[in-house]
Simulated scan of single mutants.
Amino acid sequence: MEGELTWRTLTALYSLYEGNKIPATKKKNNKFQNLISRKLIQYQPGNHNYLIKGDKYDDYFVKRYLVDYQEYDLFLKSIQPDVSGRQTYTVNDIRSLQFIVENREQIKESLTTRHTFSEDFFEHGGSKHLDTYHSLDNLVLSILGVKDYPLEDPKMHQWRFVVDVNEPQFIVLCENLNFLKMPRIAREHKIELWYVGGNNTKGIHFIDKIKLNKPLFYSCDWDYNGLEIYCQLKKIFHKKGCDIKLLYPSEPIKKYSVNMEKHKSKWKPTLSFSGLEQSLFTSKEINLINELISTDKWIEEETNDLIAMVKGYINL
């Protein structure tokens, strides 16, 4: 599901699925413009003030949105009983809220300033996201059971976030929180996820030795910082007598300029292979990294398909 889709839009889509008509003013929204052009929705005959669904709309909605809508609806009502279809939370916001609820006790123990908290848990919006969306900020404070954020950041905040799975078949260590915010997908495929972002590699010492016998993978941004963490992990697991593999980006591979807004990791063009230990990478990985360095590009972890990446090594 598109992360920038708003709850307001999603509830309107569900209303159409239920057989209701919605105001034609929704046509200004790009999502509804697309659905009209595809003839999945149409103007109500005799009254163009409303939109109604077409014959193929239900199949489309069930395939793309129904399960997620039901999950998010149940979740939002559990934390905000008066929630309606008017909220402008995005799907990314809702996933962040779900993650905060599941990990609230640990988060409270190392709570940061509003800006740092927003950067950590609403990375899609950046450090000012909670400044901009006051109702979302108030909801976060309510979930955590605090009146405000500390005036100063603690010197250290080491998170140990895990998507636990009964009898996991694979362990994937993630540089970012994105995949951990969609635990249902990982659990359906018996993939346990660990967060190791921000050089938070100390948490791997908590991994049960039994799980170290499972295939270990690392998912990250393909930029200097993400790949440098991989080099650290490779050495740590080697000392433990096991190996970890780097998940190769899934197709289509989306590459972005390292100078884009909010991206801080830069290559080191004056150093051979940007200062990374080339011996720790396969020839295929080296070719892609060299291309990224030479073109000053990077690959964002969340643009990849987790299951497709793991399937590149093992049939699920």
Results as ranks from 00 to 15, higher is better:
residue 58 D to F: 01
residue 32 F to R: 01
residue 24 A to Q: 08
residue 24 A to L: 09
residue 59 D to N: 12
residue 34 N to M: 10
residue 49 N to W: 11
residue 27 K to A: 15
residue 58 D to Q: 15
residue 68 D to P: 01
residue 41 I to F: 03
residue 56 K to F: 10
residue 64 R to A: 04
residue 50 Y to S: 08
residue 60 Y to D: 03
residue 27 K to T: 14
residue 53 K to L: 03
residue 22 I to A: 04
residue 57 Y to C: 00
residue 68 D to Y: 07
residue 44 Q to T: 12
residue 56 K to N: 15
residue 70 Q to R: 15
residue 66 L to C: 05
residue 55 D to S: 13
residue 43 Y to N: 13
residue 49 N to V: 05
residue 51 L to E: 02
residue 39 K to T: 11
residue 22 I to E: 02
residue 25 T to C: 05
residue 26 K to Q: 11
residue 43 Y to T: 13
residue 48 H to W: 12
residue 43 Y to W: 13
residue 60 Y to K: 07
residue 45 P to L: 10
residue 52 I to G: 00
residue 23 P to Y: 09
residue 23 P to H: 08
residue 70 Q to V: 10
residue 41 I to V: 15
residue 51 L to D: 02
residue 51 L to T: 02
residue 43 Y to D: 12
residue 35 L to A: 09
residue 54 G to F: 03
residue 46 G to H: 09
residue 31 K to E: 13
residue 69 Y to G: 04
residue 41 I to Q: 01
residue 63 K to N: 11
residue 47 N to Q: 06
residue 24 A to Y: 10
residue 49 N to M: 11
residue 29 N to L: 04
residue 41 I to G: 01
residue 49 N to H: 13
residue 42 Q to G: 10
residue 35 L to P: 03
residue 26 K to D: 01
residue 49 N to P: 00
residue 62 V to M: 09
residue 46 G to Q: 09
residue 36 I to A: 06
residue 24 A to I: 06
residue 48 H to K: 14
residue 27 K to H: 06
residue 54 G to R: 02
residue 50 Y to I: 05
residue 40 L to E: 00
residue 50 Y to N: 10
residue 69 Y to C: 06
residue 30 N to F: 05
residue 66 L to I: 06
residue 22 I to Q: 02
residue 30 N to Q: 11
residue 43 Y to H: 15
residue 39 K to S: 14
residue 53 K to W: 02
residue 40 L to Q: 04
residue 28 K to I: 12
residue 41 I to H: 02
residue 48 H to M: 08
residue 59 D to C: 03
residue 53 K to P: 02
residue 56 K to W: 01
residue 57 Y to I: 00
residue 54 G to N: 07
residue 22 I to R: 02
residue 44 Q to G: 00
residue 46 G to S: 08
residue 27 K to D: 09
residue 51 L to Y: 05
residue 24 A to D: 05
residue 23 P to D: 10
residue 63 K to Y: 07
residue 32 F to Q: 00
residue 62 V to C: 05
residue 30 N to P: 15
residue 52 I to N: 03
residue 44 Q to E: 14
residue 64 R to K: 13
residue 22 I to K: 03
residue 23 P to C: 09
residue 54 G to V: 03
residue 61 F to I: 10
residue 69 Y to S: 09
residue 70 Q to T: 12
residue 31 K to Q: 12
residue 57 Y to V: 00
residue 65 Y to E: 10
residue 59 D to R: 12
residue 25 T to Y: 11
residue 54 G to H: 07
residue 70 Q to M: 14
residue 24 A to C: 07
residue 39 K to Y: 12
residue 60 Y to A: 05
residue 38 R to G: 04
residue 39 K to C: 05
residue 43 Y to R: 11
residue 63 K to P: 00
residue 65 Y to S: 05
residue 39 K to W: 07
residue 32 F to I: 02
residue 66 L to R: 10
residue 31 K to H: 08
residue 56 K to T: 13
residue 46 G to Y: 08
residue 66 L to D: 07
residue 60 Y to Q: 06
residue 64 R to C: 04
residue 33 Q to C: 09
residue 48 H to C: 03
residue 46 G to C: 09
residue 27 K to W: 01
residue 42 Q to R: 15
residue 34 N to A: 11
residue 22 I to H: 04
residue 37 S to D: 13
residue 70 Q to H: 11
residue 66 L to V: 04
